[in-house]
C-alpha cells in the first residue's frame, strides 16, 4: 500500500549542521574565519599573500586553500610562513563544511588569530554553502565588468565585505569603480567596500584596519 510521508527537510541541512560545529570551534578559539569568494583570477591568492606578509609580524594566520586541482596556491602561501592546507575539490565547484572540518585536523592553529579560507573561484555555488565562517569576503577585480554584483547578486548579498582589486590598472581601463560600488550597494546596502592594489599597496591600510577589528571581535 502506498503512503505519503512528510519530511520537510532542507537539502543543505547536513552541510549547515557541520558548518555550525565549525563555527563553534572557531569561536571557542577566538579565531576570525574568513571565506574568500570570487570568480577565477580576481586576485584572492595575491590579496591573501600580501595581507599575511604585511601583518604577520603582528598576528598569526592559517590558510585553507580550495582549488579543483594543483597545490600551486598552497605553495605560494607556504612561502609567507603561514600554516596552509590544500583541499582539491576535483569535480566539485565549491568547498563545503565537511571539507573544512576534515582539513582542520591538519592545521595546528595554536596562536593563529585568522583562518583564511580561499574558496574555489566561482560566484555561484559557494554562495549557498556555509562553511562556518565569520563572514564571506567577495573579491572582484577591475578587469571584470562593473555589473558583476548584479549578475551574481546572491554572492554579493551574502558577503559582508567586498575587496575591489588591481586598482593600479584603472588608468588603462574603462572600468567605472563608482558604478561597481553602486551595484554592490544596491544588492547589499550593508557591504563594506575596499579598493586596493596588491601591487602598489594602495588602499590596503583600510582593509587591514578592518581585518584587525575582526580579530578583536572574535577574541572577545
Amino acid at each position: 500500500m502506498a503512503k505519503t510521508l512528510e519530511i520537510r527537510k532542507n537539502v543543505l541541512a547536513k552541510n549547515d549542521e557541520i558548518a555550525r560545529e565549525n563555527r563553534e570551534f572557531f569561536q571557542s578559539r577566538g579565531l576570525a574565519a574568513l571565506n574568500f569568494v570570487s570568480s577565477p583570477g580576481a586576485g584572492k591568492t595575491s590579496l591573501i599573500v600580501r595581507t599575511i606578509n604585511d601583518l604577520k609580524a603582528r598576528v598569526n594566520f592559517a590558510v585553507i586553500e580550495g582549488d579543483q586541482q594543483t597545490d600551486n596556491d598552497a605553495k605560494k602561501i607556504e612561502q609567507t610562513g603561514a600554516q596552509v592546507v590544500q583541499i582539491n575539490t576535483v569535480s566539485s565547484c565549491h568547498l563545503d563544511a565537511d571539507m573544512i572540518k576534515k582539513s582542520l585536523g591538519s592545521l595546528d592553529m595554536d596562536g593563529a588569530k585568522y583562518l583564511f579560507i580561499e574558496n574555489v573561484g566561482n560566484l555561484v555555488c559557494p554562495a549557498s554553502y556555509d562553511l562556518g565562517e565569520m563572514m564571506k569576503v567577495a573579491v572582484m577585480s577591475v578587469t571584470e565588468g562593473e555589473d558583476k554584483p548584479v549578475k551574481y547578486p546572491k554572492m554579493f548579498r551574502v558577503s559582508s565585505a567586498l575587496v575591489i582589486t588591481k586598482t593600479d590598472l584603472l588608468p588603462y581601463l574603462d572600468f567605472d569603480v563608482d558604478l561597481a560600488v553602486d551595484y554592490a550597494l544596491k544588492v547589499n546596502p550593508a557591504i563594506k567596500v575596499f579598493k586596493v592594489s596588491v601591487k602598489n599597496g594602495e588602499g590596503l591600510e583600510g582593509w587591514y584596519n578592518f581585518l584587525l577589528t575582526l580579530s578583536d571581535a572574535a577574541g572577545r
Binding site: K3, T4, L5, E6, R8, V11
Partner: peptide, 11 residues
Amino acid sequence: EELAVIEIEVE
C-alpha cells in the same frame, strides 16, 4: 530561497 524535500510517497 527554499530547497527542501517536503514529502515522499512510498510503498
